[in-house]
Design a protein around this nucleic acid. Sequence first.
DNA 1: TCTTGCCCGTTTGTCCGACAATCAGAGCGT
DNA 2: ACGCTCTGATTGTCGGACAAACGGGCAAGA
Lengths: 251, 251
Amino acid sequence: MTQTFERLDVPPAYQLVFQAIETEIVEGRLNAGDRLPTETAMARQFGVNRSTVREGIRLLEQSGLVRREAGRRLHVSLPHTRELAPRVSRAMVMQRVTFRELWEVAMALEPAAAALAAARISDAALTRLEENVEATRQAVAAGDPVVPLDVEFHALVAEAAGNKALLLCREPMSLLFYPAIRVLFTKSETGRIAQGRLIKAHEILLDALRARDEKTARDWMTRHIVDFKRGYAVRGLDMDAAVDRLSLLAV
Amino acid sequence: MTQTFERLDVPPAYQLVFQAIETEIVEGRLNAGDRLPTETAMARQFGVNRSTVREGIRLLEQSGLVRREAGRRLHVSLPHTRELAPRVSRAMVMQRVTFRELWEVAMALEPAAAALAAARISDAALTRLEENVEATRQAVAAGDPVVPLDVEFHALVAEAAGNKALLLCREPMSLLFYPAIRVLFTKSETGRIAQGRLIKAHEILLDALRARDEKTARDWMTRHIVDFKRGYAVRGLDMDAAVDRLSLLAV
DNA sequence: TCTTGCCCGTTTGTCCGACAATCAGAGCGT
DNA sequence: ACGCTCTGATTGTCGGACAAACGGGCAAGA
């Protein structure tokens, strides 16, 4: 009988450099804030050329594990939501995720975030939410766009939930979902009605959070998200159409 | 009066190369499967050195936007869950996410996934779930580890929900959550009891999905996730301890 | 016909050496 | 103390080079 062999892949040296440094970081021997050695030094240590080290560094850079501070020296850094979320969002767009799919995820996450926030919200966070709601009222009065403020409102609620895993899960969805509802708040009559409902929901949510009332927070957030779906239906928009690439640039 | 200027940052050329190609892909002028030009050709087109192009390619590679097929030529590819989820998981570990945080997210996502799956599951997916539950029964009988099968069960349910956004949100959490519950299923007496409860929950869930019973699916998934928390408490484990780095290697 | 071996142009991975721009810090003058 | 200049270190970019591996064509052998 003939022995079958599985394809053995020889990773190029620059990937080994990447993995070596990545391991140091993940295993905690290099901590956030630490400075990496210079490229030449690492080239000497690894016994490869500086170009090879540089290619490895690019991989680290894109993973968010190292960052180039204002100057030039490389620092180890925590990969942060601001870098990871856009990549996941982009993947969603490329996989032709629909508004319905985003809405379903929002229906799961946003009410949960609201309930957690009600239990844990700090006074500082409450103040920022109050400012946000006030700004939204003014934007509506002035005819300015409300969606950026809506995005902020929900982000603040999620942040107040004090759950870093939730933030990481929610952000990519949020990045696409809220831009996609921009159409619901145009200057038409329907748009004005939708803005009124949005303000009311935010106000009630704010009150519920202030009162540490988990149940009301959860229920009204649910209503609020359901409202977006209804807005879509009322306008005859297709919930099963893929979210557009343009959404990525919107916020 | 003197004009004030804000610091203008000149991105290095390799990042421009990255952005240029990234844009081509995101805007749809380059589609998944397309072959990229050779490095020398791109260097000629961009008017930069091949080394610079290569550094840009490393950034694309790490984003999952291009892939090195078996041979060598670079193909455009959809960034997939398998690449994105581990990065987010790693970020969670580095941010010292606790089991409680993961559990809260699971409490939001898993019941929703179960309900959606009940509405949409295909016969093929049902078959795979049945096989999984059967394999779990055998693993319990044989004393083999059940956690990998549990991970698979929940992944199958999520897949059956037919929601790509949900999959992308859920995966990073799942990658950490299920390894973290491994301790609950040791060979002790408590472990055996926990295994029994797990099997029962999976069986009922399977029946609910087969019957397209959304409510039962959601309720039992909720119970099932609550059970994990109880298991943690019963064993006196600290839910507010950061999930360990080791979890990353576990599955 | 199918396999094997060989040749050849192409492409990637790696290396070497070089240099301008820029930053950090030392030293200096006021 | 403050500002200035000089100097060395470091990064970003370049040009050129070469071995290894691949793809494909072609010929020899079963």
